[in-house]
Protein backbone atom coordinates (compact mmCIF):
# COMPACT_ATOMS: atom_id res chain seq x y z
CA UNK A 1 0.00 0.00 0.00
CA UNK A 2 2.82 2.31 0.92
CA UNK A 3 4.58 2.26 -2.43
CA UNK A 4 1.57 3.12 -4.52
CA UNK A 5 0.40 5.95 -2.32
CA UNK A 6 2.50 8.83 -3.75
CA UNK A 7 1.17 8.44 -7.30
CA UNK A 8 -2.39 7.66 -6.23
CA UNK A 9 -2.51 10.78 -4.09
CA UNK A 10 -0.97 12.78 -6.92
CA UNK A 11 -3.71 11.50 -9.21
CA UNK A 12 -6.41 12.54 -6.76
CA UNK A 13 -4.75 15.94 -6.41
CA UNK A 14 -4.53 16.42 -10.18
CA UNK A 15 -8.19 15.53 -10.63
CA UNK A 16 -9.28 18.04 -8.02
CA UNK A 17 -6.89 20.78 -9.20
CA UNK A 18 -8.20 20.37 -12.72
CA UNK A 19 -11.80 20.40 -11.56
CA UNK A 20 -11.17 23.58 -9.56
CA UNK A 21 -9.58 25.32 -12.55
CA UNK A 22 -12.34 24.14 -14.88
CA UNK A 23 -14.96 25.69 -12.62
CA UNK A 24 -13.15 28.97 -11.90
CA UNK A 25 -11.29 30.05 -15.03
CA UNK A 26 -13.31 31.85 -17.67
CA UNK A 27 -10.69 31.51 -20.42
CA UNK A 28 -11.47 28.52 -22.61
CA UNK A 29 -7.87 27.53 -23.27
CA UNK A 30 -7.40 27.30 -19.52
CA UNK A 31 -10.51 25.13 -19.25
CA UNK A 32 -9.12 22.81 -21.94
CA UNK A 33 -5.83 22.54 -20.03
CA UNK A 34 -7.83 21.82 -16.88
CA UNK A 35 -9.72 18.94 -18.47
CA UNK A 36 -6.44 17.46 -19.68
CA UNK A 37 -4.94 17.67 -16.20
CA UNK A 38 -8.05 15.98 -14.78
CA UNK A 39 -7.66 13.22 -17.34
CA UNK A 40 -4.03 12.68 -16.37
CA UNK A 41 -5.16 12.38 -12.78
CA UNK A 42 -7.68 9.66 -13.62
CA UNK A 43 -5.11 7.74 -15.67
CA UNK A 44 -2.54 7.98 -12.90
CA UNK A 45 -4.98 6.58 -10.33
CA UNK A 46 -5.95 3.76 -12.68
CA UNK A 47 -2.38 2.55 -13.17
CA UNK A 48 -0.99 3.36 -9.73
CA UNK A 49 -3.67 1.36 -7.95
CA UNK A 50 -2.89 -1.66 -10.14
CA UNK A 51 0.42 -2.04 -8.33
CA UNK A 52 -1.20 -3.29 -5.16
CA UNK A 53 0.02 -6.86 -5.60
CA UNK A 54 3.53 -8.23 -5.13
CA UNK A 55 3.59 -9.83 -8.56
CA UNK A 56 6.50 -8.68 -10.73
CA UNK A 57 4.28 -8.49 -13.83
CA UNK A 58 1.82 -5.58 -13.68
CA UNK A 59 -1.78 -6.00 -14.83
CA UNK A 60 -1.70 -4.95 -18.50
CA UNK A 61 -5.41 -4.06 -18.78
CA UNK A 62 -5.22 -0.69 -16.98
CA UNK A 63 -2.24 0.24 -19.15
CA UNK A 64 -4.14 -0.54 -22.32
CA UNK A 65 -7.13 1.42 -21.07
CA UNK A 66 -4.93 4.43 -20.36
CA UNK A 67 -3.43 4.37 -23.86
CA UNK A 68 -6.96 4.36 -25.27
CA UNK A 69 -7.84 7.20 -22.91
CA UNK A 70 -4.85 9.30 -23.98
CA UNK A 71 -5.84 9.05 -27.64
CA UNK A 72 -9.45 9.94 -26.83
CA UNK A 73 -8.18 12.93 -24.85
CA UNK A 74 -6.04 14.26 -27.68
CA UNK A 75 -8.96 13.90 -30.10
CA UNK A 76 -11.28 15.84 -27.78
CA UNK A 77 -8.60 18.47 -27.19
CA UNK A 78 -8.10 18.99 -30.91
CA UNK A 79 -11.81 19.44 -31.45
CA UNK A 80 -12.09 21.81 -28.49
CA UNK A 81 -9.18 23.93 -29.72
CA UNK A 82 -10.73 24.18 -33.15
CA UNK A 83 -14.07 25.25 -31.76
CA UNK A 84 -12.25 27.75 -29.60
CA UNK A 85 -10.38 29.19 -32.59
CA UNK A 86 -13.62 29.41 -34.55
CA UNK A 87 -15.33 31.18 -31.68
CA UNK A 88 -12.41 33.53 -31.19
CA UNK A 89 -12.35 34.35 -34.89
CA UNK A 90 -16.06 35.20 -35.00
CA UNK A 91 -16.49 36.89 -31.62
CA UNK A 92 -12.99 38.08 -30.77
CA UNK A 93 -13.31 36.44 -27.38
CA UNK A 94 -12.00 33.22 -25.93
CA UNK A 95 -14.52 33.04 -23.12
CA UNK A 96 -18.09 31.91 -22.77
CA UNK A 97 -20.30 34.97 -22.50
CA UNK A 98 -22.35 34.17 -19.41
CA UNK A 99 -19.60 32.61 -17.39
CA UNK A 100 -18.93 35.68 -15.30
CA UNK A 101 -22.59 36.21 -14.55
CA UNK A 102 -23.25 32.73 -13.34
Amino acid sequence: MNALLPYTLTGVGLFCLGLHALLTHPHLLRKILAVNVMGSGVFLILVALAKRSDSPVPDPVPQALVITGIVVAVAATALALNLLLGLAASSGKAELAEDLDE
Binding site: M1, L49, A50, R52, S53, S55, V57, P58, D59, P60, V61, P62
Partner: peptide, 10 residues
Protein backbone atom coordinates in the same frame (compact mmCIF):
# COMPACT_ATOMS: atom_id res chain seq x y z
CA UNK B 1 -11.22 0.26 1.52
CA UNK B 2 -9.96 -1.28 -1.71
CA UNK B 3 -9.07 -4.95 -1.41
CA UNK B 4 -5.39 -5.01 -0.36
CA UNK B 5 -4.41 -7.68 -2.86
CA UNK B 6 -5.29 -6.99 -6.46
CA UNK B 7 -4.53 -9.00 -9.54
CA UNK B 8 -7.22 -7.58 -11.84
CA UNK B 9 -7.28 -9.47 -15.09
CA UNK B 10 -3.57 -10.33 -14.99
Amino acid sequence: FLPPEFSGLR
